[in-house]
Design a protein around this nucleic acid. Structure first.
Lengths: 379, 379
DNA sequence: GCACTAAGTTCAAGCATTGAACGAATGAGG
DNA sequence: CCTCATTCGTTCAATGCTTGAACTTAGTGC
């Protein structure tokens, strides 16, 4: 490392600080200087190339009180955007997201892709992306998949075995001529609650269910993925060591008691919306199925909280839909089993993001990286 | 932050890099330059104050081959030391540790302190520390306690209720006129395997048992403590949700099946050494008690690994003593229950540190901080 | 004694931030 | 309409750390 590099690091770090402040909200140079602790001089200096490169715009002066009016800076309305894409068992989704955190467009297409080849799926995803891409620079694509990702490769996907091992990121990248980054849907759903807005603090777990149960774990403001991408496999936390046999080879996994397929079967329903209606109608079979699932999930979450010591659980995906009927059982198991559960306040909330959480997180992966490594913005 | 601060940060960062390289092993300026990526000029500059302040010494030139002989730098034999101290239910321990990672002296005194007041305990600890402190500068004291520590306060200690809430760090600090830092014994036992030598990689869990079961979790080379110090409470991971009632209010906690007290009771023994002898003699009751504990612990560890995704488990404390008879059961549960357990290699090893692991970690807390914040060395 | 090699030192150059001084743009008050 | 107060944004010399090249030092090999 040369000295130039050292100083460049300082500059990039400050650039990151400034961009983070701008993601939070727009502001004049003077305002940003106050918020970041840097000087006005440095702010002029740092923002100059951002303005020159069309990343930021200077808005017309706002007339507010005495003194020279400030000219707020914000992300350029024609500046770079990120693309998020989600490949899931029963649907595909895409979204475009600006650096300011605003969604530009989003599309969700129900599609059963269980039997499709990776080429067929990627063709379809690429087509969807092309349809929504605006006439603006594109930073890259975040691609969500329902499975374990390690070193950019899908290494485990019980529900999409055909895609395991396929070079999904590279292949989609070739189709679109863009950088593509692959990640697990649970991690990305969690990220969507962390970036660009903190919806659940800096330490939380996001839990959702489709066929499996996935938890995205956020520790100290970072998604925790573990050494090989397997972190947060809440579905295979054991709650009854001699319990029901699981496809993973273990017994008594949470997934066997609180998976969406189990809930539906026990409730005698085929689809989530039908279950939701039954619950609202007070159907006893539905209510007891959901309660049983909540209890199992609560035991697993208590274990998780005793290990990770995070204060907040966010229910996402199908669990968010059911949360009204699910929360009581979960919370009571957690209160009884989380160490010092009474004094430590454990918060259980439903995700506000709905069915677009994953794809939004996928796009967020890209905007976040752009902000954290500002040199990418000038490429 | 002034510009001076920025530059100082660069310098301190480089100082840290150099000190880390020296903890690894001594080396000449040229050698260190090569290892750290800095230039010889910078190394001369950075080491000058370290030599002037008696942190490092320059050894006589070593005659090795051609060229001007190098003068290796190492930590000064009369340089600053750290003190570790451990308060436990049945013993007190102290240790002095040099920056080079060498233990100077250590003492372990069996003492039942269950009924002692915090003043009595701290008097005793201070006395032990005074006995082993050498005539060298002291960086500070790391103090290990069997309980949950948050913001420097012991907030939960089922086995030492009298010490909960007492200002242990401050009070011991007053007695010795030194900085004292408090931490949980499980975290410190784990730290001892990470610093100053990597004994189990950068991602692992250290598990040990006394009355409770504690896990110290190391993620990406840092001890993970959670938001409120409760992380790694493996003892209260549930393995049978309708199992044995636990003192914590839950049911089926690992601790109720694999705690040392449970093992001893089931084996019909009073003490660990008696159990160890029985095991070596092939006593069936002892063997089956340990096997049962290993199975329960294995289930809990599988759950932990499915959540944290760390590749290595280190058995410490009493478990290290029993590991020969414990490992098989643990490993087989882990292989069966850790997701992709076959392909991911999960390593299970016994700690090489013996009964001084905790106190060594406590001292390591202090040397580690000194290296990571080198400005402390000049105070 | 001389060439060769490698360690360690010296020093001018380069660079990002700073703080103070300065210029710019507006509102308030007369 | 003019002047003063106020705040925004820019300019510029100063600061201090690392660098790389040149240089000095201290050995080996012949």
């Amino acid at each position: 490392m040369t000295t130039v590099d050292h100083l460049r690091q300082v500059r990039l770090g400050n650039l990151r600080t400034v961009l983070l402040a701008l993601v939070d909200r727009p502001g004049s140079r003077a305002d940003l200087a106050a918020r970041t602790g840097l000087t006005k001089a440095t702010l002029s200096n740092l923002t100059e190339p951002l303005l020159a490169n069309g990343i930021l715009v200077e808005e017309p002066a706002t007339l507010a009180g005495m003194g020279r009016p400030s000219k707020p800076l914000r992300f350029h309305p024609d500046g770079p955007v990120a693309v998020g894409a989600e490949i899931n068992v029963s649907h595909l989704a895409v979204e475009t997201l600006g650096l300011d955190g605003e969604t530009l467009r989003r599309v969700l297409v129900p599609t059963d892709i269980r039997d499709a080849t990776s080429d067929e799926v990627l063709d379809r995803v690429a087509e969807l992306i092309r349809e929504i891409i605006p006439a603006r620079p594109v930073l890259g694509v975040g691609l969500a998949v329902p499975g374990v990702v390690h070193d950019g490769v899908l290494v485990r996907a019980p529900n999409l075995p055909k895609l395991v091992g396929a070079p999904l990121a590279a292949d989609l990248g070739l189709r679109l001529n863009l950088d593509v980054e692959l990640d697990n849907e649970a991690n990305l759903a969690a990220l969507a609650h962390l970036w660009p807005r903190h919806l659940a603090g800096e330490d939380f777990v996001h839990v959702s269910a489709d066929v499996g149960i996935g938890a995205g774990v956020v520790l100290h403001g970072e998604v925790y993925r573990g050494v090989s991408g397997f972190a947060g496999e809440l579905g295979h936390v054991v709650i009854e060591r001699n319990g029901v046999r699981c496809t993973c080879g273990s017994r008594g996994c949470v997934e066997r008691y609180a998976g969406l397929d189990v809930i539906l079967r026990e409730a005698g329903r085929r689809r989530l919306d039908s279950l939701a209606k039954a619950l609202d109608a007070g159907d006893p079979k539905a209510l007891s199925a959901v309660k049983a699932a909540g209890e199992a999930l609560g035991v697993g979450l208590a274990t998780l909280m005793n290990l990770f010591d995070v204060p907040t659980v966010v229910l996402g995906g199908s669990y968010a839909v059911l949360h009204e009927h699910l929360s009581t059982a979960i919370q009571s198991e957690m209160d009884a089993r989380v160490l010092a559960g009474g004094e430590r306040h454990t918060t259980l909330v439903a995700s506000p993001l709905g069915e677009f959480a994953v794809v939004r997180g996928a796009a967020g992966l890209v905007t976040r990286r752009a902000v954290q490594q500002p040199e990418r913005l000038f490429a």
